[in-house]
Design a protein around this nucleic acid. Sequence first.
DNA 1: AGGTGGAATGGTAGCGCTACCATTCCGTAG
DNA 2: CTACGGAATGGTAGCGCTACCATTCCACCT
Lengths: 376, 376
Amino acid sequence: MRDPRAEAERAGWRNDKGADLLSAAARRTCGGKVVTGPRSRRGGGRPTIADVARKAGVGAITVSRALREPGRVSQDLRRQIQDAVDELGYVPDPNARALASARAEVFGVLVPSLTNSVFAEVVRGIYDSLSDSPFRIQLGNTHYSGLEEERLLQVFAPQRPAALIVAGIDQTPLSRKLLETAGCPVVQVMETGPDPVDMLVGFSHFDGGRTATEHLIEVGCRRIGFIGARMDPRSQRRLAGYRAAMEAAGLFDPRLVTTTPLLSSVTLGRELFRDALAKMPSLDGVFCNNDDIALGVLFECHRAAIAVPKTIGIAGFNDLDMMQTAFPSVTSVRTHRYEIGRRAVAMALAAIAGNRPEQRIVDLGFELMRRESTAR
Amino acid sequence: MRDPRAEAERAGWRNDKGADLLSAAARRTCGGKVVTGPRSRRGGGRPTIADVARKAGVGAITVSRALREPGRVSQDLRRQIQDAVDELGYVPDPNARALASARAEVFGVLVPSLTNSVFAEVVRGIYDSLSDSPFRIQLGNTHYSGLEEERLLQVFAPQRPAALIVAGIDQTPLSRKLLETAGCPVVQVMETGPDPVDMLVGFSHFDGGRTATEHLIEVGCRRIGFIGARMDPRSQRRLAGYRAAMEAAGLFDPRLVTTTPLLSSVTLGRELFRDALAKMPSLDGVFCNNDDIALGVLFECHRAAIAVPKTIGIAGFNDLDMMQTAFPSVTSVRTHRYEIGRRAVAMALAAIAGNRPEQRIVDLGFELMRRESTAR
DNA sequence: AGGTGGAATGGTAGCGCTACCATTCCGTAG
DNA sequence: CTACGGAATGGTAGCGCTACCATTCCACCT
């Protein structure tokens, strides 16, 4: 199974010194002076655009054009060049291309978490939308940190990406400046707001939080707790929506709110719910910051034999698949994560192509999924 | 808030024709002949290594060395150069660097899914391990398809990545050849096996499946079903482990096995469990391909008032956080996904540095977490 | 004093591609 | 018939960096 040639190649990069000695030995000397031939192909022997041009009997630049703007090359040459490309197995070097054109075919994507399934789905939408394009994706994990976001933008910008997609609208001033001066389309995602850096696709977390809370009030809950983890700006807005609904109904009480900066998880949801109950045993509803928390609440209700929705109504946020299957099924605010990713890419591609979307701010909304957990 | 200069810059790339006209207007003519000065900085005015060299009063190559191999430059110059770098805000251009050195500071990472939290955690381990290194990450989603994996490898290879990390050991022959001839360290992850392309970090899915099944047998289950979705090679090996344990105990019956090629989800787990029960109502245990499925089974048991573990014991795979919090808590095979990502990077970095790990195959094992769902 | 070897630094020549012209060749208008 | 303009193609000169030598300088030996 093992290919000895490949093995030898691997040995090459294992130790650069070894490789140096080899090439030194292979060097020719002539009359005491060292004469070096043309530098041996560092690229590992892959064909270059010049090889294709030679084979097709045209200039290198024509090959370049045939590949990038086929319309500008006559059909005959185009076919000839394509044949040469196929025969040689030529693949353009993206690094050389980026250097020469001062523009890399890369989308920079910054998300606060790779494991939070909400962002994972946005990222999946982005990947799926770009899989047939020449664009690669450079993904960065900001860990919900503005400073980390700044750092990553400073790493991404020098690569001159074709577009940048970032989560949220609460960039630090430096991050915002980096985005503004990146010289490429920028799409902020997952939220909505009046003043995007460039383009924006998302929905209103405030409205989502308010809608879910209003629903709990409608079905007869009165002492409705808010349980939230990792209170990032989006969670804060959901909390604000909750608060607005509660205040409008004259039901708000700060003791109803239980939050933590810790990263969200089902287990943490259970613990926070226990804290909330200890603080306020008469709770008859909870709006959870997200579905992980809601699931933790649901499990604790099972464990403590608290009837859902009879004793306590539960509403979550995001509508993960499991919420419809849970027992009882859990009311949640469905958000269109995958579609946000797709839309962000579509807008960026349009801008790159020169026709920016007329609508710079796209609100994809949300949908309240009423289920058993609030059916009272 | 809006910076008009940035706005203008954006207008520039909106329409290349516009930019062309601008620069054409700025071109000087002299005696009827068009004279172009040195090509205007396409890079957008960012400082280059030559600017730093000039400022520091040294050769460009010395700056390059000071940045990449500080040990080979005297301390005086090093400081001088660092000052110039700081003052100019110089950041090396990764594209130029990759072109000149025929080696990009990029890790190529191929996973079958971005939303499956198992791979998300591997990816997180990889990102966290590389966040302080100069290496970037190029992530590819194979969608559990061998052909897609081939396609992505053909995209990645021309970029001459510093290392490749791929999920699984079941590459197609072409993919395997691409990996072998990539000329960089290759780490296969998530599984173990005798014949890696280069290096390997993972665990035995067969043993995991067998161990979970043996545990169900030990606690007294006899008619133990296997429920699995998206039967990728790893799922197949878990199934094989299940089968081995069942056959060893004289309990195997093909009607106990319920699988589907559909993508795994909690909802699908519930449906498959209903199918399994319809086929075999006397089921007294289930080993689930993964925790999503197990959760679906658990919810269906709640809904159908099937006592867990009394009537049916449930075991899952991967031990997601929620399994310990579920009610009843669910027995699962804990796998070390994050650590696999970290270890893969550590091995690749060691190989890049020239000292390949003595151990090319690392088995990180797994741990059976016995919980209420099998406490009979 | 001359030789030797190593450390520090620099010059040159590309890496593979594309921007920016220049050139050629046609069809059409004058 | 010539001038003109546009379409198709090519040549040249880099993009910003690093590999590969060459050079310098010094300590240390013989």
